[in-house]
């Protein structure tokens, strides 16, 4: 059995930042593995550890900078990794879910996985659409926002819980092959061991350019473009307590007494 995990390196903005053009100035961005993808990797590695002959492959669309993040996945038990990138990406605009799904479809066709795991969304642009778009494109079944997974590979069924709103979970049986988008909290992502980090250095991490996956520059044409980015105007009219921690705490304490939620 083969599991493909799609992972993304995402940018997180510092508290104080400036916008340069259509994005936050890179000086104020920190790059890290997408939080949801950490859980997807852990889920795949746990399936591998519980089963016989399971291979876990990760695929990332991203520049060379992302290799450090990809290696972390390898250190946690991913067997090998694929990075899709090409000089043409440098000039490409906003990649919409369909464009990304087309790129990933080409990898799925070559790898022929039984199961694809993705994060529910990326922490930076929060589109939340690539996994299900991919499923439809490659004619896989799917399930979105999965927070429990019980895989019966012999029967070809994934029994999942989907985390709905308001503390309700939907129980669904999904035929394989399938794409599942993984919600945070489904498991406890491990830390990479020193041994894992050492081993990761010798695991395969292959670069696939557009040509290698049978696509050309046209594959990067997207109907969506970002036309503006700005800080939302603060709607807040909070009374801000000023002073030392002792002073502000004293003011808050009297507020809580005045409102009547604490005695005294």
């Amino acid at each position: 059995m083969k599991i493909l995990v799609t992972v993304k390196e995402v940018a997180e903005a510092e508290d104080d930042f400036d916008i340069a053009g259509l994005d936050i100035d890179e000086r104020y961005l920190e790059f890290d593995l997408n939080e949801w993808d950490e859980y997807a990797i852990e889920e795949a590695v746990q399936i591998k550890e519980d089963g016989d002959d399971v291979e876990v492959v990760s695929v990332t669309i991203g520049p060379e900078r992302a290799e450090e993040t990809i290696r972390m996945g390898l250190a946690k038990g991913v067997d090998r990794a694929i990075r899709v990138w090409d000089d043409a990406f440098e000039d490409a605009g906003m990649l919409d879910p369909k464009t990304k799904a087309d790129l990933l479809s080409a990898v799925v066709e070559a790898e022929e996985p039984d199961l694809v795991l993705t994060g529910v969304q990326a922490g930076d642009d929060s589109f939340g659409a690539t996994g299900v778009t991919l499923a439809e494109s490659i004619d896989f079944e799917w399930g979105a926002v999965v927070n429990a997974l019980d895989l019966d590979a012999d029967a070809g069924v994934a029994s999942v819980h989907r985390e709905l709103e308001g503390g309700i979970e939907e129980l669904t049986d999904i035929e394989l092959p399938a794409v599942l988008t993984i919600q945070t909290g489904i498991n406890e992502p491990r830390y990479a061991s020193l041994r894992g980090i050492r081993q990761a250095q010798s695991k395969p991490l292959d670069l696939h350019e557009l040509d290698d996956i049978g696509l050309d520059d046209e594959a990067l044409e997207s109907p969506l473009s970002r036309t503006a980015m700005y800080e939302p105007e603060s709607e807040g009219d909070a009374t801000v307590f000023e002073g030392s921690a002792e002073e502000t705490a004293t003011e808050l304490a009297s507020l809580l007494r005045d409102v009547g939620v604490v005695e005294g």
Binding site: A11, E12, A13, F17, I19, L22, I24, M94, G123, D124, D125, S126, P223, L224, S225, R226, T227, A228, M229, Y230, E231, P232
Partner: peptide, 17 residues
């Protein structure tokens, strides 16, 4: 109009279709 970076910024996205 949609948000990015955990609601720190808003963006506008034009749809060419």
């Amino acid at each position: 109009t949609r948000e990015m970076y955990g609601s720190k910024v808003e963006t506008t996205v034009a749809v060419d279709a």
